[in-house]
Amino acid sequence: MPETLAALLFAHVLADFVFQTAWMVRHKRRADGLALHGLVVLATAMAATGGFDPGLLWLTALHVGIDALKARSKGGLAAFMADQAAHLAVIAALAFGRPDIWAGGLWAGATALPALMAVAAGAILATRAGGFAVGLLMGPFAARLPEAITAESLPGAGRVIGLLERGLIFALVLLGQPEGVGLLIAAKSILRFGAVRDDRALSEYVIIGTLASFGWALVVAYATLSGLAALPPLGIRAVAP
């Protein structure tokens, strides 16, 4: 079952956070938008498991149904988290009910592949999915900041910084160097201190965003380590302290 779960999770993050276009997101209230996204979900699931299983049709149908419900919600962080939790529950149910999907696929002989998929899925969840989650959390706070402050920022710089810091945290934890996260926090605090020390609203905004970003990456990283413990090892030596 762990191999099937890893493959299905990898397929999910690819479908939702890599191959899902802005057009699909905007048109999820339309049949064509949902149908196109559903085809991506099915294609990634077949590619990740190395074959076709009827359970993947069930997975795709439920994925589309969950997205249709979310498209009619008010949006926001709660809707995003509920949507992803529902998808993960469906994936877990399918992996539990049909644990042989991986064994019947083309990649069954590649014993290290499920662990690689788990690491890749974790990296995407930590960086890309984390960006959406933190952005939704910070949206209401950003709307209250003065326009003069937000106008001074480089376009897209905050998003890139978030991707880099979450990616670094994920890598540090998986490499057995979680102490490096403390150095990353210290470095960011020093670099940000001069810009925010005289503005309480901006300093609170930065603190909330930083804690949310770091916390998300740490949770995903340690969840990935837990998943890897149930899979055949990659054979990569841990980095010495």
Rank of each mutant, 00 (worst) to 15 (best):
G75W: 10
G75L: 14
G76A: 11
G76P: 07
G76M: 04
G76C: 08
L77V: 14
L77C: 09
L77S: 08
A78K: 15
A78I: 10
A79M: 12
M81Y: 00
A82E: 05
D83H: 11
D83G: 13
Q84D: 12
A85P: 09
A86C: 13
H87T: 13
H87V: 12
L88G: 03
A89S: 14
A92S: 12
A93H: 02
L94Q: 11
A95M: 09
R98P: 01
P99Q: 05
D100C: 04
I101L: 07
W102R: 02
W102M: 02
A103F: 13
G104T: 09
G105V: 13
L106P: 02
A108V: 13
A108F: 12
A108H: 12
A108S: 12
A108G: 05
G109P: 07
T111A: 15
A112S: 13
L113S: 06
L113R: 07
L113Q: 05
P114C: 10
A115G: 04
L116F: 13
L116V: 04
L116E: 06
M117F: 14
M117Q: 14
A118I: 00
V119E: 07
V119H: 09
V119T: 03
A120F: 08
A121M: 02
A121P: 02
A121S: 06
G122L: 04
A123V: 00
A123G: 13
A123D: 03
A123F: 15
I124H: 07
I124S: 06
L125D: 07
A126N: 11
R128D: 06
R128S: 11
G130L: 04
G130F: 01
G131C: 09
G139A: 14
G139W: 00
F141K: 15
F141Y: 08
A142S: 13
A142T: 12
A142L: 08
A143R: 11
P146H: 08
P146N: 07
E147W: 01
A148V: 05
A148F: 05
T150A: 10
T150I: 06
T150E: 09
E152H: 10
S153P: 00
G156D: 11
A157W: 00
G158V: 15
G158H: 01
R159L: 10
V160P: 01
V160G: 01
L163N: 08
L164S: 11
E165F: 02
L168M: 13
L168E: 03
I169V: 15
I169C: 04
A171T: 11
A171K: 00
L172M: 14
V173N: 03
